[in-house]
Amino acid sequence: MPKQTKRVKRESVLRGAWLDNPMLVQAIGLTPAIIATTSLRMALWFSLVTAIHLLICEMVASLWLKKWHSWARTAVYFAIGIIFAFGAGMLFEVWGGVVGQTDVVDLLMLRAILPLMATSSIAAVRCERFAVYNNLRASVRDALVNAVGFTAVMIIMGLLREGLGHGSLFGVELTETMRIRGFWMPFGGFLLLGFLAAALKTILQWTSQRGITTDADEAMEFCPEDRQERLEKIHHLLNAADEYEKSRKPDDEPAPESQQEEAQPEAEPKPVSVLFEPATSNFTREFPRLDDLTIEQLLAEFQGGARDE
C-alpha cells in the first residue's frame, strides 16, 4: 500500500476549494455544470446530493477500500451513487406530487438527470487520487473542500444561466427583455465555465497564492516531449535510488519494508482474491508530482504502474 503522500496541505477549506476547485482547476465533474445549472434551484439540489455522495464515497474509500482493486472500488462508488440517485429521485417525486407539477418542473427534470450523478467523475477521481492514500480525517476534509468548490461553481453557473438565459431566479420572473438563450444552452455552459476558470486564475494571480500554473494546467500541457522528459527524470531518480541503496550501510537503518518481507521465511501463500489486492494502478492515469513522491513510491510507480509506450 503506498505511503501517505506529502501532498496534504494544511489550508482552510475555503482556500482549498478555491485553489483546487474540482471544476475550474481539476476539470472534473463538468457534466453537472452543463446539464444541471439551467436553473438555480436544480443546481442547489444537485450540489447537495453530489456533496453527500462525495463525502460518503471518500469516507468508505478511506476506511475500507484501500486494499481493493481499483476497478472494484469504482464499482462501489457507482453503487453508492445509484442508491443516492434513486433515493433523491424518489424524494423529488414525492415532493413534486405534493406541491404540483407546474411549481417544480425543474425538479421533475432533475429526477431524469440524477442518475448521471452516479457516474459523475468527481467522486471517483477524488477517491482514487486522494482518499485511498490518506486517512479518514484528511479524506473528509478533502470531500468538504471539493464539495464547497463544486457547490460554489454550480451556484454561480445557476445564477448566471437562469438569470440571463431565462430572465428568472428560483422560477420568479425578473425580466422579459433580457433573455439570451445562449446562456442556458450547452455551449453557453462550456463558455461560462471557461470564463469562470479564467476569472479564478486572475484572482489567483492577484493574490499570488499559487502562481499561474496549477496541477490541471500541468496535465493539460502534457505532450510526448514532456513524457520523454519525465521518463528521463524517473531514470535519473532511479539511478539515485540505486546509489542510495549501495551507499547505505547494512547496520545503519532497518531495511525498507519490502526487503524485510523478502527476508522472512516463506510464508503461506495468500489466497488469491479478486477484490482484495494491493492497488497498483489508478482509475485515471495521474501524472505523479515526482518531487513529492518518495523513492519507494517512485520505484512502485515505475515498476508496477502501466505505461503507454
Partner: peptide, 12 residues
C-alpha cells in the same frame, strides 16, 4: 493571455 492559458482556453 496568462489568465486563459491551460484549462480556461480549452473550455472556451
Amino acid at each position: 493571455p496568462t489568465q486563459f492559458s491551460g484549462v480556461p482556453a480549452t473550455l472556451v
